[in-house]
Simulated assay, not measured.
Amino acid sequence: MSAQKDCEFLVKRARELVSEDPCAAKAWLITARTLYPADFNIQYEMYIIERNAERTASAGRLLYDMFINFPEQPIVWREISVITAALGLVPPNQEPVKTPEEQGKVKSKTRKGNDLRLLPCTSKAILPFCLQLMLACFKLRAFTDNRDDLSLGHVVVLLQYDWPQGEMLFLKAVDKICQQGSFQYENFFNYVTNIDMLEEFAYLRTPEGGRIQLELLPNQGMLIKHHTVTRGITKGVKEDFRLAMERQVSRCGENLLSVLHRFCINEKIIIIQSLP
């Protein structure tokens, strides 16, 4: 039996077991993915099972994996277009995300409804997908050789979801900030409430942390000029930062998904403009 037929058999067997024994179906697909990690159909079937079962976090991770490993697959981009449109991240006058093949065409074809895989239009179902997809997109810019503090800041905000799974990537972001010697992201105190992240950024300001210049407060450039004239840059800016950090620590108990939902809605324009 060829490898292709083996894959088809494993996927078919999993489909047969989904309704009566979901755990067994998942076991078949895990085995299949281990044997054939480069097969798209196996990973897509795993994603469909998790999505239909409304296990949004695991489904989001699987869709993220497909986005990274199989960007040429049209069905991946269709899933992305449904998610981003449902959450309101696609402006009314902008067409949904197109597949690589569709992007090369002058005339776009109208999609039929039965070509799309639909999810319930609720934040609980859609938001985790959207956060994973945005993280995948912003990583492309944040960790290139070119400096992009805005994308790096977005990555820090998004890594709060499903913490501590993204801790290693967060530490990579911190390393890049240390290499730069400075970091500017004026939305930091609006959306970063993770206590581990707050402690790390507070440490960066200390002599032991490298005295990294952090511009995390709105209009901090103007504040620096003000403090230079009135109280001295070191005393004034350090005091503002300390007070802002104390206020932020008191927000650590806020509902994280609500914070991230506000991030998606309030920063919609800048998010779209920042996407690769």
Rank of each mutant, 00 (worst) to 15 (best):
E200A: 15
Q179T: 14
V174S: 05
F188D: 07
I195G: 04
M197S: 05
T193P: 02
L171K: 12
Y185E: 01
D175Y: 05
K176D: 08
M197L: 06
Y191W: 03
N187V: 02
F189M: 03
Y185W: 09
L171Y: 10
Q184L: 12
I177K: 03
L198P: 03
S182P: 00
K172F: 07
Y185T: 03
E199M: 13
D196H: 10
I177P: 01
E186C: 10
Q179I: 11
S182K: 12
V192A: 06
M197V: 14
N194K: 08
V192G: 11
E199H: 13
E186A: 08
Y185P: 05
F183W: 06
K176F: 05
F183G: 09
M197F: 06
Q180G: 13
E186S: 15
E186Y: 09
E199T: 14
F188M: 05
F188H: 08
N187F: 08
G181A: 01
Q184H: 13
Y191F: 15
K176S: 11
F183V: 10
K172C: 10
I177H: 05
V192S: 11
L171N: 14
E200L: 07
V192H: 06
L198R: 02
F189Q: 02
Y185G: 02
K172G: 07
A173F: 04
M197D: 03
Q180I: 04
I177A: 06
V192R: 02
F189S: 01
V174H: 03
L171I: 06
A202K: 10
L171H: 13
F183M: 08
A202I: 07
D175S: 15
N190H: 05
K176V: 09
S182V: 02
V192W: 00
C178T: 15
I195K: 09
T193H: 08
V174D: 05
Y185F: 15
G181T: 04
F183S: 09
I195R: 08
I195A: 12
G181K: 07
N187S: 14
F189V: 04
F189P: 01
A202M: 10
S182E: 13
K172H: 11
T193W: 00
K176A: 10
F183N: 04
K176G: 09
I177M: 09
Q179R: 13
F201G: 04
N187I: 09
T193Q: 10
C178L: 14
Q180E: 14
K176R: 15
K176Q: 15
D175L: 12
I177D: 04
D175T: 13
Q179D: 07
N194A: 07
V174M: 10
I195C: 05
I195S: 13
Q179G: 02
S182A: 13
L171W: 08
F183R: 03
M197P: 08
L171T: 10
Y191R: 00
E199R: 14
Q179W: 02
L171A: 07
K176W: 03
E186G: 05
F189R: 02
D196W: 01
T193M: 08
N194V: 06
S182L: 04
D175M: 11
N194S: 11
Q179F: 05
T193C: 12
E186H: 07
F188L: 05
E200H: 04
A173S: 15
M197Y: 01
T193Y: 02
F201K: 06
N190S: 15
